[in-house]
């Protein structure tokens, strides 16, 4: 919990090939992805997240991620579906190094984050990766506004006035301007999660990771949160990786849907491809059980 150790992932021992060259990888990923996403590719575009042969083992024997390969393009909204225990959340947490990958490569903007990395480099990386948690994880001792401000003042070193203006702007965007001075405990779950989104967005990251953002909410509070996320995807042009069980949201908002099971990506495609014409039996079974 308080660990500040150097990350070291021994790829040699795990029989994982080295990460691909950026140009080569971009071309290959483009070739692979162009038919399975609604994303509009720019010429010579490079993926902003590249996951190659990602492997994660807990306590030395529980293998959660077996071999995950995924690329995410700038501005793309990727929804990750799958049964519980399939490794969706673990993959997401590996991307901002809340979990240390056991083997494999993760590259953000063509920069490898797996391997040797100093804590300061990890911190720098995380500024670029917003995260929204299932359990909100707002700071209970700060107001809604304070929650949105603290990253800006302490990490981005913005002035208090600047941070406050930004915080109010972001709280307004999630419809909670009038709750700016409330403590998290005084807000509903849905409101808390919207504050958490505002907190992530206020750091102006390139990518936001959503880890089951509506799973802890009462059903009637889910919509407000999804609306905020939809707005962010459609108007903000934000790159989003969303681990979710909200099929409706995935179908409506996602550029690409990824189905994971057993620590691998089983199937991915546009929402139409995955929901309407699933190629794998497991995908069909899973979608059938949800509906």
């Amino acid at each position: 919990m308080l660990s500040n150790k150097r990350l070291h992932i021994s790829n040699d021992a795990q029989d994982v090939p080295p990460a691909l060259d950026a140009e080569e990888a971009a071309r290959a990923a483009h070739e692979r992805d162009k038919s399975i996403t609604k994303h509009h590719f720019e010429p010579h575009e490079h993926p902003c997240v590249r996951i190659e042969h990602l492997m994660k083992t807990f306590d030395g024997d529980t293998q959660v991620l077996t071999d995950v390969n995924l690329t995410v393009w700038p501005g793309e909204v990727v929804c990750v579906l799958g049964p519980s225990g399939s490794g969706k959340s673990t993959m997401l947490r590996c991307i901002n190094l809340l979990e240390t990958p056991t083997a494999g490569h993760i590259l953000i903007e063509d920069k490898e984050i797996t391997g040797h990395l100093l804590q300061s480099e990890v911190n720098k990386l995380r500024q670029n990766l917003g995260m929204v948690f299932q359990s909100f994880n707002l700071f209970p001792h700060l107001t809604a506004k304070g929650n949105v401000m603290i990253g800006q003042t302490k990490v981005l070193k913005k002035s208090k006035e600047e941070a406050e203006a930004e915080a109010l702007k972001q709280l307004d965007a999630v419809g909670l301007l009038d709750r700016a001075d409330y403590k998290p405990a005084q807000l509903s779950g849905g409101q808390q999660q919207r504050v958490a989104i505002a907190r992530a967005v206020a750091m102006h990251p390139d990518i936001i990771l959503f880890d089951e953002p509506t799973s802890a909410l009462d059903p009637e509070l889910v919509r407000g949160v999804l609306d905020v996320m939809r707005k962010l995807a459609e108007h903000g042009g934000m790159t989003m990786i969303v681990v979710t069980h909200e099929m409706g949201f995935a179908r409506e908002v996602a550029d690409r849907v990824v189905f994971m099971e057993g620590g691998v990506v089983v199937e991915q495609g546009t929402p139409e491809q995955v929901f309407d014409h699933p190629q794998h039996k497991r995908t069909a079974e899973f979608l059938g059980s949800i509906d």
């Binding site: 919990m1 804590q119 300061s120 990766l129 917003g130 948690f133 994880n137 700071f139 990253g151 302490k154």
Partner: peptide, 29 residues
């Protein structure tokens, strides 16, 4: 809770910043 460390980390806070700004104020209360 661990979630507090994770939330602070996800904002890019270092260990000391997390302690001073997030953990200790809550601990003191």
């Amino acid at each position: 809770p661990a979630g507090q460390y994770e939330a602070a980390s996800s904002l890019g806070m270092g260990h000391l910043q997390t302690m001073v700004n997030i953990i200790l104020p809550q601990t003191i209360r």
